[in-house]
């Protein structure tokens, strides 16, 4: 599905008057190859004649120096330095609403291409990815260790001062309010719902098998270490329980 690297990447044409230090050409090519070798690339980029419908409908373009059309053009024209520059900041402006993809007459997916660029930024541990993701680490810790991305105890006035002084309009302890929710799975505070121990181990296995933990290690080593400790413990818990079951069955 993907094209061979050598046929795709041309000798790069840099900006002759740029004062920026040139990034090593091989590195630029490696980055582009990582983006375009994803099997989604040729689904998401079919051509572009600069009609601008993507930017017209882009929420991020209203507030940032960001244009999905520009991103598509950089990839389509294989502007390796431009791609690298965009990955320093611009790609993180995209709100991932995929309105661009729903509108493009070529059926490109600029939002999807942004994800390929973000994945590549993470793979190479780019500084932009690290700094952008620092505030996101709470979500990732929760997700990777429990299988839930968000939990009631993450939403406090300390973390969201702009959401107002009260998280609940009934003044009572969080634990009690959660207990009063008439769904037994939701009587939790540390996860959005009660996640079966076996389930979180299964999810963790998926993380291991799909290289997600490697991504995490590249971006945030401390977070990675914390998660590995938590999950090792959980695995032991499950193994203990399984042993108990066997014992019971033997009896």
């Amino acid at each position: 599905m993907s094209h061979s690297h050598s046929s795709r990447v041309q000798k790069h044409i840099g900006d002759p008057i740029s004062e920026k230090p040139a990034v090593d050409q091989e590195f630029l090519e490696e980055i582009f190859n990582d983006i375009q070798s994803d099997f989604r690339f040729d689904h998401e980029l079919n051509g572009c004649l600069n009609c601008g419908i993507c930017t017209a409908t882009c929420p991020a373009a209203h507030y940032y120096d960001f244009s999905p059309r520009e991103m598509v053009q950089l990839l389509w024209t294989e502007n390796l330095e431009g791609i690298y520059d965009a990955m320093q900041e611009k790609i993180w402006a995209c709100a991932q609403c995929y309105t661009c993809a729903a509108r493009c007459p070529f059926k490109n997916s600029p939002g999807g291409l942004i994800m390929l660029m973000r994945e590549t930024a993470i793979k190479h541990g780019m500084e932009s990815a690290k700094s952008v993701l620092r505030p996101f680490s709470r979500v990732m810790l929760k997700l990777i260790s429990t299988g839930n991305q968000l939990a009631p105890d993450m939403i406090t006035p300390d973390h969201f001062p702009d959401w107002g002084p009260n998280i609940s309009k009934v003044d009572a302890p969080l634990k009690l309010l959660r207990k009063a929710i008439p769904m037994a799975t939701l009587n939790t505070t540390a996860t959005a719902w009660e996640v079966n121990l076996k389930t979180s181990i299964e999810l963790y296995t998926i993380w291991e098998e799909t290289g997600v933990l490697d991504q995490l290690e590249t971006i945030d080593e401390n977070l990675f270490d914390v998660i590995v400790d938590i999950m090792d413990e959980k695995r032991e818990d499950l193994e203990d329980w399984e042993d108990e079951q066997e014992d019971e069955n033997d009896e």
């Binding site: 930017t55 017209a56 373009a61």
Partner: peptide, 12 residues
């Protein structure tokens, strides 16, 4: 009508 002014690269 929502469009992009493609010359100045801004949504309009």
């Amino acid at each position: 009508v929502k469009g992009e002014d493609t010359l100045v690269k801004r949504p309009i």
